[in-house]
Amino acid sequence: MRKIVLMMSVSLDGYMEGPDRDISWHRVDDEVHQDANDFVAGMAGLLSGRVTHDLMADFWPTADADPEAPAVMAEFAAIWREIPKYVYSRTLEHADWNTTIVREVVPEEVRALKERRDAELGPGDLALGGAELAAEFLRHGLVDQIRLYVHPVLIGRGKPLFPDTDTVTGLHLAESRTFGNGVVLLRYDVERD
């Protein structure tokens, strides 16, 4: 069965964004971007909340139309347009770019999506993005792996990736990689009882 992989960037102090959704502190160079491209290209689909989806849909569909766009950005634009996307939203009425709108996180439906094999979804895991959606998936025990790009910066305040919880989730470090710019990739498998 495919995995659901939470894939996010965080500051060293655990924030996924600063105040006013600021992500200017992200240190994504060509090396980090290429790693993300390679990973996402192997995914069967992307799962995100409305805010994350809107941010992506506002930029990536035409990012490669800019002749000044770096090659890694142009490559990701093509990957993003083609990959199946599932956006979880109670309010979104329409979404383009190979996107399916899902109203609620229903664990049985998510498990069925993990098991689904057809021409639309194909092989590969499912990448999960967005703090609120990730919290909901974690609450239901639906996350199988966590892939964090930890940026070497302390931003002091903002939106934490992981909300307060009374649940302890065991993790097993499966991979770590340090990029030339100081970003560290940490990949953890979620331990199951």
Rank of each mutant, 00 (worst) to 15 (best):
M1L: 10
R2E: 05
R2I: 14
K3V: 00
I4G: 06
V5W: 06
M7Y: 05
M8F: 12
M8P: 11
M8C: 15
M8R: 09
Y15S: 08
E17D: 15
E17R: 13
R21S: 13
S24I: 04
S24Q: 12
H26K: 05
R27D: 02
R27F: 04
R27L: 13
V28H: 01
V28A: 01
D30P: 12
V32T: 03
H33Y: 09
H33A: 15
Q34F: 00
A36P: 06
N37F: 11
D38H: 02
F39K: 07
A44F: 07
A44T: 15
A44G: 14
A44E: 09
G45P: 00
L46S: 00
L47E: 08
S48I: 00
G49M: 03
D54F: 03
D54R: 13
L55W: 07
L55C: 13
M56D: 04
M56A: 05
M56E: 03
A57G: 00
T62K: 11
A63P: 14
A63F: 06
A65N: 09
A65K: 09
D66I: 02
A69T: 05
P70M: 09
P70K: 04
P70W: 07
V72P: 05
E75I: 05
F76L: 07
W80G: 01
R81N: 03
R81F: 00
E82W: 02
E82D: 09
E82Y: 01
E82R: 10
I83E: 00
P84L: 06
P84Y: 07
V87C: 07
R90K: 09
R90N: 13
R90P: 05
A95E: 09
N98S: 06
N98M: 05
N98I: 02
T99A: 02
T100L: 10
I101Q: 11
E104A: 03
E104G: 02
V105P: 02
V106K: 12
P107R: 05
E108S: 08
V110S: 13
V110R: 13
R111I: 11
E115Q: 04
D118Q: 04
D118A: 10
A119C: 01
E120V: 13
G122P: 08
P123R: 03
G124S: 10
L126K: 10
A127Q: 02
A127V: 03
L128K: 13
L128G: 14
G130L: 12
A131G: 09
A131I: 07
E132K: 15
L133Y: 10
A134W: 06
A134F: 05
A134S: 11
A135M: 11
L138T: 05
L142N: 05
V143H: 02
D144N: 04
Q145D: 06
I146L: 08
I146N: 08
L148T: 10
L148I: 06
L154P: 03
R157Y: 09
R157C: 12
P160Y: 09
P160T: 10
L161V: 11
F162M: 12
F162N: 07
P163M: 07
D164A: 14
T165A: 08
D166P: 09
V168T: 13
T169V: 15
T169I: 15
H172C: 11
H172T: 15
S176I: 07
V183T: 01
V184F: 08
V184T: 13
V184G: 03
D189Q: 13
V190S: 06
R192I: 10
R192D: 06
D193L: 14
